[in-house]
Amino acid sequence: MWDESGFDLTYNGKSIPLTPREFALLGTMLKNPNYVFSREALLKSIWENNDQTDNRTIDSHIRNIRDKLRQSDYPVDHHLITVWGTGYKWNTGGNL
């Protein structure tokens, strides 16, 4: 459960601590399921001054989100998908 107003993410009753940027990244994808975001689009939506931020920063944050969700036993690999050469998406369907 992603609660934007309470800045809270839980799965099976366990709270999953995320940094503000990780929370915003995940929220952006959850609000737009199955939409493929480029790294550039994610940078523009999350970082105010993205001129000084490298696209690989997104990769690092995505890796952290995946690790934290795995630790809570959430099946993140079925949902947070890397679209090679493009970016990332949150998959809601059964097909990857």
Rank of each mutant, 00 (worst) to 15 (best):
D3K: 13
D3E: 06
G6M: 01
G6D: 05
G6K: 15
D8L: 15
L9W: 02
L9A: 03
L9Y: 02
N12L: 14
K14S: 09
S15G: 07
I16F: 05
I16A: 04
I16C: 07
P17Q: 04
L18D: 00
P20G: 07
P20A: 06
E22C: 01
E22N: 07
L25K: 04
L25E: 02
L25G: 00
L26N: 00
G27E: 02
T28M: 04
M29E: 02
L30Y: 01
L30N: 03
K31V: 00
P33Y: 01
N34V: 04
N34E: 15
Y35Q: 12
Y35C: 03
Y35N: 04
Y35K: 15
V36G: 00
V36Q: 05
V36P: 02
V36A: 15
V36N: 06
F37I: 04
S38Y: 02
E40T: 07
E40L: 14
A41S: 15
A41Q: 14
L42Q: 04
L43Q: 09
K44S: 13
K44E: 08
K44Q: 15
S45F: 00
S45M: 06
S45P: 01
S45Q: 15
E48Y: 13
N49G: 08
N49Q: 12
N49K: 15
N50E: 09
N50Q: 13
N50C: 12
D51A: 14
Q52F: 14
Q52P: 00
T53Y: 09
T53E: 10
D54N: 13
D54F: 05
N55V: 12
R56G: 00
T57G: 01
I58Y: 01
H61V: 03
I62F: 04
R63V: 09
R63F: 08
R63A: 11
N64D: 06
N64C: 06
N64W: 04
I65C: 04
R66H: 08
D67L: 11
K68Q: 08
K68M: 01
R70I: 13
S72K: 11
D73S: 12
D73I: 08
Y74C: 07
Y74E: 07
V76C: 08
D77L: 10
H79D: 07
I81C: 05
I81D: 01
I81W: 08
I81R: 11
T82Q: 11
V83S: 11
V83R: 11
G85K: 12
G85S: 10
Y88I: 13
K89D: 06
K89S: 11
W90N: 07
T92G: 05
T92Y: 08
G93V: 07
G93H: 06
G93E: 12
G94L: 14
G94M: 14
N95H: 14
L96P: 00
L96A: 12
L96W: 15
L96Y: 14
